[in-house]
Design a protein around this nucleic acid. Structure first.
Lengths: 213, 213
DNA sequence: ACATTAATTAAACAATTGATTAATTAGTAC
DNA sequence: GTACTAATTAATCAATTGTTTAATTAATGT
């Protein structure tokens, strides 16, 4: 159950040992914060999961808040890097569909990402001020460039405000993964990888259909 | 600041007085839970806002959880009644657009409803089990009937699974109000009543365009 | 009038939680 | 080998929070 291996081991450990403790804490925190959010998880719990003392959270991360921010920043950076790596292809022809596929696949692979970001970033007024603007902003900016380009090429309806289309596309990507419990309760669908592919196809059809391309 | 009017009034009050205390607690709870969620609000805070003692929360609502459930149930029932009142017109011709207008207007008038329901109903595994199925279920059922009818009339693309269209339509209605902080940070738009009308029009165009109707 | 009853209060309780501290242990440098 | 330093632990602190309790007060019924 608990990963408490070393019952009585103090003193200065080797460098790889110390990095292992930090890493175990980060891993445990990512898992627990991911599934249950910041407030519902206690420092004792994270420490126990990592097999160390609660005081280590303070030693390595300067408290619960620091641990959370470190984990969250890593998580977002990781997720965004995956999207931005496909930057050029997204801005190119058929790019909106590529964006949809990538974003939906990303969220399907990590089911806790969407609720976590919503709960802890979108709805959290106590975050470092640049946080909200920075991470969702990068995704938004990437997609907006792609939308404007697609409108110019006639792949998307050129009439609506680009911001409206961006919001629609993000909504289509994210919403099913935000609402997974509801969808799985009220429909016969399971929000998994197979659903993600079907869904991306459905959403893609909706945006492209009727465009003058 | 605080509504503490009666400094030293104990003893059995008249019936309207006692209903006033219960009502004041419920009102304060709705406002505080609405803006900041269940966990972040303390019983002391609600009581202070209502001008009474924390113990009254236990007396009238059997604890914080009871208070929350009472308030939440009222709130959801109220919101759903407004939607179901338009039931027939939603199932009739052009009903999807009527649904969009109503739902979006409802969420624009009460900006805290969407985040509250998401945080406290969708993401809350400790609710009475029927809760999740019941309230989102009624909305979902209403809309699903309308979608099937609209598909039969050829107003909506008959090809996609009805569930997929329902999810898309709910996403279009709810998402901007879930993401209000992000949208207002990253775009020039303000998510208010005017935005709501524009948005409903945009979403309506997206769903109807290209249909065989 | 008088006992009864319901509402209300102030105070305290018990549990939880994030954080701190002083002691302890083992590597490292000289 | 001795002094030094960094990691780790166990214990504790201080604050917060939901809830309970015993006392108090006033309306009500008879």
């Amino acid at each position: 159950m608990d990963a408490k291996v070393p019952q009585k081991r103090a003193g200065r450990p080797s460098d790889d040992q110390r990095r292992e403790v930090r890493g175990r804490l980060a891993a445990a925190a990512r898992e627990l914060f991911g599934s249950r959010g910041f407030a519902a998880v206690t420092v004792r719990e994270v420490a126990q999961h990592a097999g160390v003392t609660p005081a280590m959270v303070n030693y390595y991360f300067r408290g619960k808040h620091g641990l959370f921010l470190a984990v969250l920043e890593d998580l977002l950076e990781e997720a965004l890097a995956g999207m931005e790596a496909a930057g050029e292809s997204i801005t190119g022809p058929g790019g909106i569909r590529i964006y949809l596929d990538r974003h939906v696949a990303l969220l399907a692979e990590n089911p806790w990402v969407a609720p976590l970001i919503y709960r802890e970033v979108v709805l959290n007024p106590d975050l470092p001020s640049n946080f909200v603007a920075h991470f969702p902003g990068r995704l938004f900016g990437l997609l907006r460039r792609a939308v404007v380009a697609a409108q110019r090429r006639g792949e998307l309806d050129p009439e609506p405000d680009a911001d409206f289309l961006v919001i629609s596309i993000v909504a289509s990507s994210v919403f099913p993964f935000l609402m997974r419990p509801v969808i799985e309760t009220l429909t016969a669908h399971t929000v998994d990888d197979a659903f993600a592919r079907q869904w991306a196809s459905h959403a893609g059809r909706m945006f492209y259909r009727g465009a003058a391309g």
